[in-house]
Every structure is written in structure tokens, then in C-alpha cells.
Design a protein around this nucleic acid. Structure first.
Length: 222
DNA sequence: GACCAGGCACATC
DNA sequence: GATGTGCATGGT
């Protein structure tokens, strides 16, 4: 498929999702810091467990850079316990917070106010921040255009035969960057729609029969 | 009681 | 470079 056809297919898929699920404009968080925290806590973890941990943080008045910086790692681990992997995640949160405090004097806006490539490499330099976590923070907290690839993205596009099933992170991300306009709101909502399909379809069976994408992608299977 | 969930770092070959 | 493993809770 050439570039134009692929772009139209991807936009058509997005339209189908939009029609089914409505605008998402989404990351369920109230502040940029909460996005960052949620991005770490949701690593290989259901969002429901993350909401329990975030609620605990709010009760403890710990959803704050200074508070997180001061807090003992073990104390933090206890608070985020429902999110699972709480010891590693407490360490990862401390690493991220320490970086922002040390390099940007705790100023999140200044941290985010730089070119995407710089922001990304700085995020990736922090222990515990990998590609998906970094890109989620860039898109949903810093609100810059980068396409987030997650398990849902791989599954949905892999099973519909749009990308090879065993594609790695970079090649899938590059696929979307190559064919879609570099638009923060589009990337934001597109990924949100994919999460919605992931939750509602393409779960147990390879292709759910009323998946809104099956019509769009028919003919691209296998 | 299995199985899964919006990963990542690290060890080993 | 590829593959394997530890991390852990709560919902189905």
C-alpha cells in the first residue's frame, strides 16, 4: 500500500472508532504530575489497580513533587501497594521525581518546555522509564505530538494484519508517524480509542465480530 | 484457582 | 542481539 492509501486507511479506522466510542480526549488524570505518576503505575498493570493507588496518594496528600521527593521509598511503596510491583514502582517514581527536582528545580513546565527529542531522551535516561512510559508522559502530560504504542496498539493492529504481529515498539511507532499528520489531539484521541477497543473487543478472540475495525480492515488480513 | 493487566531492567547465553 | 526472569496486586 502506498502512503496515501495507508493514511486514509488509518484515518478511516480512527473515524470508525470515533463513531463507536465518541471523543475520548483522555488520560484519566487531573494534573500533568498525575499523568506522570499514572504512567509509571500502569506498567503491566490494569488501570483499575492504578486508580486505587492514585486514590491512596491523594488521601496521603502525596500527589505532589515536593512530597514525593521527601517521602521515604518504603512509605511510598506502602501507599501505592494496590498497583502491584509496588517496590519497583516506588523506586521508579522516586527516580523520576528526583530527576525533575535535581535538573529542573522541580519545575515540570520547564521540564516539558523543550523539543520532543530532548524531552524523550531525558525521560529514557531515568531508571524505570521506558519507551511507552516516556511517550505517554510526552503526549498526555507535556501535550506534544508523539504516538504511544502499547499492548493494545500491537494487538489491535497486529491481529487485523496492519502491522506484523511481532513488530517491535519503534517500527510500530514509526508506522504511525510516517502515515499520520503530526497532531497532538489526533494522537491523543487515537490512542485513547485503541484502549477503548482493547477493553471492549479483540480480547479473547483474535477478532471480535462486532469490532468497529473489522469492516475497515477487511481485506488486509493475513 | 488459574489467568490477565496500558512495562521495564537486568542476567545470561 | 535474542531470550528469560523478577516484580505483585485486584478483577474475572
Amino acid at each position: 500500500m502506498d502512503h496515501k492509501a495507508t493514511r486514509e486507511l488509518l484515518l478511516e479506522a480512527y473515524q470508525a472508532l470515533l463513531t463507536r466510542f465518541g471523543h475520548r480526549q483522555w488520560w484519566p488524570a487531573e494534573t500533568p504530575l498525575e499523568v506522570c505518576v499514572g504512567a509509571v503505575l500502569t506498567q503491566n498493570t490494569s488501570w483499575n489497580n492504578v486508580t486505587l493507588a492514585i486514590a491512596n496518594l491523594k488521601v496521603a496528600r502525596a500527589l505532589d513533587l515536593g512530597a514525593l521527593y521527601q517521602m521515604e521509598q518504603d512509605t511510598l511503596a506502602g501507599i501505592i501497594r494496590p498497583s502491584g510491583y509496588y517496590n519497583v514502582k516506588a523506586k521508579r517514581l522516586k527516580s523520576l521525581v528526583a530527576y525533575i527536582v535535581r535538573v529542573y528545580n522541580g519545575n515540570l513546565e520547564r521540564f516539558f518546555d523543550q523539543a520532543v527529542t530532548h524531552l524523550r531522551s531525558e525521560l529514557l535516561s531515568v531508571n524505570g522509564i521506558g519507551k511507552e512510559t516516556a511517550d505517554s508522559i510526552i503526549l498526555y502530560a507535556a501535550q506534544k505530538p508523539i504516538f504511544v504504542v502499547d499492548a493494545y496498539t500491537k494487538r489491535v493492529f497486529g491481529r487485523h494484519g496492519i502491522v506484523p504481529l511481532e513488530s517491535d515498539y519503534d517500527s510500530i511507532q514509526e508506522f504511525f508517524h510516517r502515515h499520520l499528520p503530526k497532531d497532538t489531539l489526533l494522537f491523543n484521541d487515537y490512542h485513547a480509542q485503541l484502549v477503548a477497543v482493547g477493553h471492549n473487543h479483540c480480547k479473547k478472540r483474535p477478532i471480535c465480530k462486532d469490532c468497529p475495525l473489522s469492516t475497515v480492515f477487511s481485506g488486509h488480513m493475513g
